[in-house]
Structures are given as structure tokens and as C-alpha cells.
Design a binder for these strands. Structure first.
Lengths: 143, 143
DNA sequence: ATGAATCATTCGAGCTGTGAATGATATTTC
DNA sequence: GAAATATCATTCACAGCTCGAATGATTCAT
């Protein structure tokens, strides 16, 4: 009896999210390495696509990483032609990062990859369970 | 219109799980560091509690890490008195790892920590959404 | 105008985790 | 049964990721 609920650490959301997150990240990493990207690159590009003209410091805070890491990631994305650095005219200390056409294309391919992985990953869920999961994850990530 | 679905990389489960997993792991790590533990220690102890008498290689495969890492983790857990190494009688190459009373107590504290974090993390979900999430995550993690 | 704050960047260092060698024990093959 | 081969845990050196402190440039406050 009692395999249903409240059973040990593995039944907590924190543990399960940690586990699944590691799997998801690892698979995504392998899937996009052919594009010369790592997950954090996709994260940065996503942030750039979402809000325009943020300082790298704000981006770092949003991504939860050190500002110096944003520099490195931006360097690599710039080398791929995915991102462009421009000095902010109003504040010449700031660098404005903008997605290029190449960047947008790369991001689109990342999305395609992610959707394909979703199919694999969520294969055992019923459509109803899938929708419920999407709803909950949407709330947790703040949409 | 259209903030509902199919909208960019951030709307994929892979991306959201990766993000939330990182948050969950990071918070859990901070919460248990006072116990002298890291998330992987909890992962190993959980595996030990689940199935008895597995070789370290099998444990490594189950956890998705290199066998040499299991050695390191076991060393540290042994130093905490949480785990005991015994030579397998039938195959003296193998070390049998068993949770001690201390280990079981530590694991229980980890679970308490995780449940507390769950409360924070899932605070914005309705009870119904919570149940649906638990169901989906349960399926995805294999129970 | 001068000093303090804020930006991006560089650099050095720490921590994790891996893979290749090692030695001990088991298993297979002849 | 003995020698060759395979498998286990362990050690060790190394690569990768990320951070924090130091640097230089620019802006803000006084």
C-alpha cells in the first residue's frame, strides 16, 4: 500500500524538477551543439528576443548569472554573427545587444529542436496531462 | 491576442523544465549546505534508499554520472557517517553501500527541506494545478 | 572640477565532473 | 587448473564552467 503520495524525497516537486531539468538541459545541449550553441546561449538570445535594449548587467540579473559570463556568451554569439554590440548613445558605458537575422534564425532552430524534444519527453503523457503540465509550468515561469 | 500558446522557445517544456530545474537545484543546494550536503549527495542517498545492494557502477548509471564521481560522493557521505561501505561477499570487487541511521536521518531532513521549498515554489498554483503538476511529474520521472 | 558610482571587460582561481591509468578480484578459455 | 580477459572500485590529471576581484572608461553627484 501507499505508493501514491507523500512518499520520500523523490515525490517532491523540487526533486523531480531538478531531475527532469537536468535531463532536459542535457538533451537540449546535445541537440544544439551542432549549431555551435550551448543552452545558455539560447537563454541569452531568448532574453534578447523578449525585451529590447537592456544593459548586460540587467540581462545577467535576469538570467541569474554573473555579468562577466554575459560578456563571454555575447562574445561567442557575436562571433557566430547572431548578435550585434552597439554602444548606447545615451550612456556610452552600456553596450546594447541586438539579435541579428542570423540570431533570429538560430533561435528559431532552437525552438524547433526544443519542440521535437518535447515530443519525446512528454510522450507518456495524455493530452490532458500535457495541457495541465503546460499550464502549471507557464504559471511557475511567469508565462 | 495570442499570448496563450505556441509562442517561442520559452513556451516549450524543455526550456521551462530546464529553467525551473536550475532554480530548484540552486535553492535546494543552499538549503542543505548547512548539513554538509550537495544535491548529488541527496540523489545518491535517495537511490540507496530505493533499491538495496547495487554496485557503484549501477548506481552511477542510474544517476547518470561517471563511476568515479560515485566514489567521491560515497567518500564524503562515509565521512559524514551517512553511508557504510562493505565488501560484497559473493563478489569481493564490489562495495555495497548502505544507508546508516545517520544517513536515514539526513535524508529525512532533506525531504523536509524539499517540502518546505515546494511550498514556496508552488505558491502561485491552485490546489488543482498542484495536483495536476504532481501527476505529470510523477509520470515523467517514472512513478 | 573632483570624487564616487556604474558600466563592460579581462583575468585568475575554484569547483565539478570526466576519462584514462591502476590494482584487485572474477570469469572465461584452452 | 592456469593463463588470458573482463569487470570492479579507486586514484589522478585535466578540461570546462562560472564566479569574484581588479581595470579602465564613462557618467553622476556635490
Amino acid at each position: 500500500m501507499s505508493d501514491v503520495k507523500g512518499n520520500g524525497l523523490p515525490s517532491t516537486a523540487v526533486f523531480q524538477l531538478g531531475t527532469l531539468g537536468a535531463v532536459a538541459e542535457s538533451r537540449f545541449a546535445r541537440a544544439v551543439e551542432g549549431l555551435g550553441l550551448k543552452p545558455k546561449h539560447a537563454g541569452l538570445m531568448t532574453a534578447l528576443a523578449a525585451v529590447a535594449a537592456e544593459s548586460q548587467q540587467e540581462l545577467a540579473a535576469r538570467l541569474g548569472v554573473a555579468p562577466s559570463l554575459v560578456v563571454t556568451l555575447a562574445d561567442q554569439l557575436e562571433a557566430l554573427g547572431a548578435v550585434q554590440r552597439t554602444r548606447d548613445v545615451n550612456d556610452r558605458r552600456r553596450q546594447v545587444l541586438t539579435l541579428t537575422e542570423v540570431g533570429r534564425a538560430l533561435l528559431a532552430r532552437c525552438e524547433a529542436v526544443a519542440r521535437a524534444l518535447d515530443e519525446e519527453l512528454l510522450a507518456d503523457l495524455t493530452p490532458r496531462q500535457r495541457a495541465a503540465l503546460a499550464e502549471a509550468l507557464g504559471v511557475l515561469t511567469g508565462r
